[in-house]
């Protein structure tokens, strides 16, 4: 057996916050920091990023600021076996980008048909109402994966970026108590 220290004595040497590309150079930072610094998305376009932020914020307050779109974008750019996305746990079949892209298309199509505009352009109250119906598979004419599945995966991602971090635990008053501390408090 490797001679390990007890709680917190050993850090994951090769793991830290996520790798984002800034000015052609890879930098390690938390997704919220990447958002604050306007780091360009790797795979998402601006509309997709805006929609994911609006969905994330509707599902879990503070998900936008925590960088949910940058988190998902960065994770979609790594091989599926390295991905940390909840899609993996929900048995979504790679490539995971297909899931997010089709989910955004389904949401926007329904939003435009029912409320006359893309989801990201809705009022907060309408966004909330829409997500509630999506959760219950009660949006008529919905196409693609069931709304409940989209709700579950995106909500889980938003929970991750807001509550799954050391800062998230701290905000809830829960001692984190790591054996091996994630670098950069992620």
């Amino acid at each position: 057996m490797t001679n390990m220290g007890r709680r917190g004595f050993v850090k994951g040497a090769t793991l830290g916050a996520l790798a984002f590309t800034v000015g052609g150079v890879e930098a390690i930072m938390a997704p919220g920091e990447a958002r604050a610094r306007n780091v360009p998305f790797r795979l998402l376009d601006a509309h997709q990023g805006e929609t994911l932020e609006a969905l994330g914020e509707t599902l879990v307050p503070q998900a936008r600021e925590a960088g949910i779109a940058h988190y998902i974008d960065q994770q979609l750019s790594v091989p599926p076996h390295e991905a940390l996305l909840q899609a993996r746990i929900f048995n979504v079949r790679p490539p995971f980008a297909d899931f997010y892209r089709t989910a955004i298309v389904s949401i926007d199509e329904s939003s435009r048909r029912i409320l006359g505009r893309d989801f990201a352009q809705l009022s907060a109250a309408d966004q909330r109402e829409f997500v509630g119906r999506m959760r219950q598979n009660k949006i008529e004419g919905w196409t693609g994966r069931p709304g409940a599945a989209v709700y579950a995966v995106l909500r889980a991602d938003a929970v991750d970026v807001v509550y799954g971090t050391m800062e998230g635990y701290e905000a809830l008053g829960i001692p984190y108590m790591p054996h091996i501390t994630p670098e950069k408090r992620w």
Binding site: M1, G12, L15, H81, E82, L84, T165, P178
Partner: peptide, 22 residues
């Protein structure tokens, strides 16, 4: 996997969950 790979994080912990052919 080595013991040093076992990061105390639900997020990073997903690395040790199923991957490969679905």
């Amino acid at each position: 996997w080595q013991l040093t790979d076992l990061i105390s994080s639900e997020i990073w912990g997903r690395r040790v969950k199923p991957a490969g052919a679905p």
